[in-house]
Amino acid sequence: MMWRALAVAGAVVLLLALGAGAWMISRGPVAPAVVRSSDVEAPPAPTSHITATLFFGDPGGRGLIARRVDVPLGASVAEQGEAILLAALGTRPPGTTPVVPVGTRVRAFYLDGTGTGFVDLSAEVRTKHTGGSFAEALTVAAVVNAVTSNLPSVARVRLLVEGREVETLAGHLDLAEPFLPDLSLVVGRPAP
């Protein structure tokens, strides 16, 4: 009697198992299990810098040379521009000469909405300038090219000193108008 009851129970279990199997096959592939973010490794952090092309003096004295430099990522075009200028006026890569007077600070960088970027530099860019139209051209081109080469939305650059328009930096180049990018003073191979 007892064996009979056990056989019936086994048959019921077997039927239930077969039924469950048939039901699972009939409803298609198994849906992926829900995965909580705490169950997996965190995704890689967003890039915290960009690689910008900056311009420094050629030790051979022929013009500017381009160098690729890591610059902190900015939250906006204006912030990115300021970060680029800080790098351009900061530590020089080895094998280059300074073209912006040492001690010059970036006071501000802002945009006017028509593609013109305004670079406001401290007074040292004039008071500590060596003079000479060649040195003056290198200073202007290094700043203008640093901005326009890395910020596609900036087509031209206007230079200000201590927040004001100035006639020239050292008596030669007219700063009344914004400057377009000028790579004619860049010599040598592209930046490594």
Binding site: D58, G61, T97, L138, D174, A176, E177, L180
Partner: peptide, 26 residues
Amino acid sequence: LHANFSPSPKTAGVEVGTYRAAGPSA
């Protein structure tokens, strides 16, 4: 008449400049 200057002591020679407008309006 002017005298020139370069960040590099190697740059030398006489140069002659003429005017060219800079900005978009000019």
